[in-house]
Design a protein around this nucleic acid. Structure first.
Lengths: 225, 225
DNA sequence: ACCTGAACACCGTTCAAGT
DNA sequence: ACCTGAACACCGTTCAAGT
């Protein structure tokens, strides 16, 4: 009896008549998996299953799971809002970019340890974003040697803040240690949450506004040194 | 033939005559493992082996591996330098604390996703550090509602910067995409590394000085609002 | 209460065999 | 070149049995 070739049928071993996988399809499937069930659900097995392929087939297109994460990272970078660069002044553009960047990575915190250490070589979309940023700094009159350190400082703050958003709301409840730490306990109770915002948003706003202003002051200091 | 009871001998099943494990011993063994071979080496199996115990024995003292990480985290917090609080002015004290905090977590980046989301309840040493910080902010005249957001903003920057230190030096080499991204490529080449420092140190210094100054400005704005 | 030892349900990755 | 299927060397965790 011949093997049925129905649409849901099993694919026999051997090279298929037409390619079934590609980096693009793998990236898209990974993103769908992550959006549906978070990073815990992203396993090589589940990824293969969603592509109706054996897990080992993936290794013809990526070298490792880390590789898959790199593909995902360079894809989601494009969802960061860079539309204010070129249309709004430096400060407003940085502000919009930073909030958007934080929001995107709040949903992708497991990528942070990957991206923070990843050479940009070959991560084309990521490089594109840096190019756009650099142009905005130059247009605003920044001295070239300060631009990369400033971008890195902003990014570091953004990555750390993305983790903070995922923290439970009661993260600073001292519990039974409240009496031993009265000043902190009181400060937590009285913290300014801003207009209807969360604690994470208030901290991000304060830090971002401080950093934007402080970096500008550092720029002036550097120029006058 | 009776089982030998030599020092390296096998321990029979059943409750031992005296307790062999404790949270303290587990924490110490985990730290030794991490210092010797990094977090890849910290497995429940390896941990058990270093304590000369079966892996399942650990679960009489901790609920999970995550639990072990929490123990490690609350232990290494004590190695952060808080000695400047109470002896030096706010700005200098924050500066020393921040550099030390970053350096400690540079060697423990896998803890960052844990600590950033961890309720401080029961993390006694962590709470102690926050209490010390809050006291320093109060002594410097900060409005109470701003203290927790300011601490969180500083911590977010520190955590993100700790990742950055672990990045390879050539992280921003554009490779063959250099021509497509000329402004960024040039900015990377000309970046100010400071006095004999690394790129990561330069970015941290710039960001920290900016954040310290910027937060102080935000404080004044808040008071005058 | 606190250990051992066996087992479970996963992981990511490798590799021979097939077309 | 690019798939399948079986196998490998791990993981963290559970649980009955033992004292």
């Amino acid at each position: 009896m011949a093997v049925e070739a129905a649409s849901g049928a099993h694919r026999p071993a051997g090279r298929p008549t037409q390619k079934v996988l590609s980096k693009e399809r793998i990236t898209a499937a990974a993103l769908t998996l992550i959006e549906a069930g978070g990073y815990e659900r992203l396993t090589m097995s589940a990824l293969a299953k969603s592509l109706q392929v054996a897990p080992s087939a993936l290794y013809n297109h990526v070298a490792s799971k880390q590789d898959v994460l790199v593909l995902v990272q360079d894809d989601i970078i494009t969802s960061i809002d860079v539309s204010a660069f070129g249309t709004e002044p430096w400060e407003a553009a940085i502000r919009r970019w930073a909030w958007s960047y934080r929001d995107v990575f709040t949903r992708h915190t497991p990528l942070i340890p990957v991206i923070a250490v990843l050479p940009v070589t070959g991560a084309g979309q990521t490089l594109r974003m840096y190019e756009t940023l650099t142009a905005a700094f130059l247009d605003d009159g920044w001295p070239e040697p300060l631009i990369v350190p400033a971008i890195v400082a902003l990014e570091s703050f953004i990555f750390g803040s993305a983790f903070d958003v995922t923290a439970p709301e009661d993260i600073f409840e001292s519990g039974e240690l409240a009496e031993a730490n009265p000043k902190f306990t009181s400060a937590v109770r009285s913290q300014d949450l801003g207009a209807g915002g969360s604690a994470a948003d208030a901290a991000f706003r304060l830090g971002l506004e401080g950093l934007i202003g402080g970096l500008q002051a550092q720029r002036d200091t550097w120029a006058a040194r």
